[in-house]
Design a binder for these strands. Structure first.
Length: 199
DNA sequence: CATAGGATCGCCT
DNA sequence: GGCGATCCTATGT
C-alpha cells in the first residue's frame, strides 16, 4: 500500500530512515512508470545537525521546502549536475530529511537503463549513488515540493522486511565539514547481493 | 554584482 | 585513484 502522509510525520528521523529500507519507491514521470526497492538512506536531523542544510534553523529559497509538512520531496542540484532526492519528514516547521542513496531496480528496467545509459542489467551495482537514483527515476530538481501521496512520486510498503543482520549502519558520505556530527551513524544500507537472495 | 564550492559520477590512467 | 564536468546556492562587497 502507498504510505500515507502520517507515516512521514514521525518524529525520529533516524529510525524512520532505517525503516525506508525495503520500501518501494515509484515514479510516474514523463509518461513512464519506474521504481525499485530502497537499499540505502541517510538521515538529516534538522536544525541541530551540522550536516543538514537546515542547520541552525537557516531558511533560504533552497531549504524552505525542508520546513514543509512530512511527505514532501526535497530535490536539489549538487555539483551542477546531479539532482538529489530527499524525503521531508516530521511536521511542518521541523526540517528533517532523508536522502535516498540507492535503489534495487524492479519496475521499468528498460526506461531506467536508457535514462542512465546503462547497457547491461547488473543489479549488484545498478543505481547505487543518489545522483543515479534520481536519474533512473526521472526525478529533476524542479520536482522539489511535490507531495509523496500523489501520482508522480510515491512510496509503497509491500511487507518486504529486511533482516536486521543485513543492515549496515555507518557515517554519512561527504559531510566531513560537519565536525563531530560527521561521525554519527545516520547511514543505513543493504548490499544488493544480499537483497537478491532474500527477494 | 562576483565568486567559491557542493549530501556526485564516469571516464581515464 | 585522480580529475573534469557543470550550474545553482549562499555569502560577501
Amino acid at each position: 500500500m502507498k504510505l500515507p502522509i502520517e507515516y512521514y510525520r514521525k518524529s525520529n528521523v533516524v529510525s524512520l530512515a532505517k525503516s525506508f529500507l525495503g520500501k518501494y519507491l515509484f515514479t510516474y514521470l514523463d509518461g513512464k512508470f519506474t521504481g525499485g526497492i530502497i537499499t540505502e538512506t541517510e538521515a538529516y536531523n534538522g536544525i541541530i545537525d551540522k550536516a543538514s542544510h537546515a542547520f541552525g534553523g537557516r531558511r533560504t529559497n533552497r531549504t524552505e521546502i525542508m520546513y514543509a509538512d512530512g511527505g514532501t520531496a526535497y530535490v536539489y542540484l549538487c555539483y551542477g549536475i546531479h539532482s538529489l532526492f530527499n524525503i521531508v519528514t516530521n511536521r511542518k516547521d521541523i526540517p528533517h530529511a532523508i536522502l535516498i542513496r540507492a535503489l534495487f531496480p524492479i519496475e521499468g528496467l528498460e526506461t531506467m537503463m536508457i535514462r542512465t545509459n546503462k547497457k547491461n542489467l547488473n543489479r549488484m551495482n545498478l543505481f547505487i549513488g543518489p545522483g543515479l537514483v534520481s536519474k533512473a527515476l526521472g526525478i529533476h530538481y524542479s520536482d522539489t515540493g511535490k507531495k509523496l501521496n500523489g501520482n508522480e512520486i510515491w512510496i509503497e510498503d509491500r511487507n518486504f522486511k529486511i533482516p536486521n543482520a543485513k543492515i549496515i549502519t555507518g557515517p554519512r558520505v561527504g559531510v566531513e565539514y560537519a565536525g563531530k556530527d560527521a561521525a554519527l551513524p545516520y547511514r543505513f544500507r543493504v548490499m544488493h547481493r544480499d537483497l537478491e537472495k532474500i527477494i
